[in-house]
Amino acid sequence: MEVPVVRNILEANDRISAQLRKLFAQHRILVLNLISSPGSGKTSTLERTLTDLAGEFKMAVIEGDLRTDNDARRVAATGAQAVQINTDGACHLDSSMIQEALEAIDLSGLDILFVENVGNLVCPAEFEVGEDYKVSLLSVTEGDDKPEKYPLLFAESAVMLLNKTDLLPYVDFDMARAERFARALNKDIAVFPVSCRSREGLGAWYDWLRDKVREKKNA
């Protein structure tokens, strides 16, 4: 016999994600899921952000990597709480991994929790981890057609950081093209050109964070 089911295959993950969201809402913590390809500068962006906003916010980071705790050590050096998840080859973080990592994080008084996902533009877009927003990072040393090639991620992101703008004179990256395609399926996406190296443009990204923290506190 044929049994109609119609159940979301990722429902187990979505269920835990919803629980996490509730927990974060109770603590009024802004949670951001940071997604990019390997080498776009997720960890550098975090190091810079955690350092520059250390006086304003209490922040923590969950680091997802296939192996090593290199990134967690880099991030912890800024004074923020950092927990490493080693996925042992898995290409994305899921909600149960976050749930486990939270055991090592003190949520009290926390303003922002960054989840640095595994470097990958495909799989992390499918798995919620209790975040308020996805933040995608694209560096100008990559192709400006990434938003065309990986539409789901950019359609789901609230922010696209275009990193390494100090290298623009040396590459053929078309900022307008990247932005146009990111907006094609997501008219509200905030696009911030930044350079973690020269610090150019970081102010707009920080202002966005301040706005969202304020919204979360007043929610």
Binding site: M1, E2, V3, P4, V5, V6, R7, N8, I9, L10, E126
Partner: peptide, 9 residues
């Protein structure tokens, strides 16, 4: 992304 139906006995 969903499981639509199964056929089983």
């Amino acid at each position: 992304l969903y499981l639509d139906n199964i056929e089983a006995e």
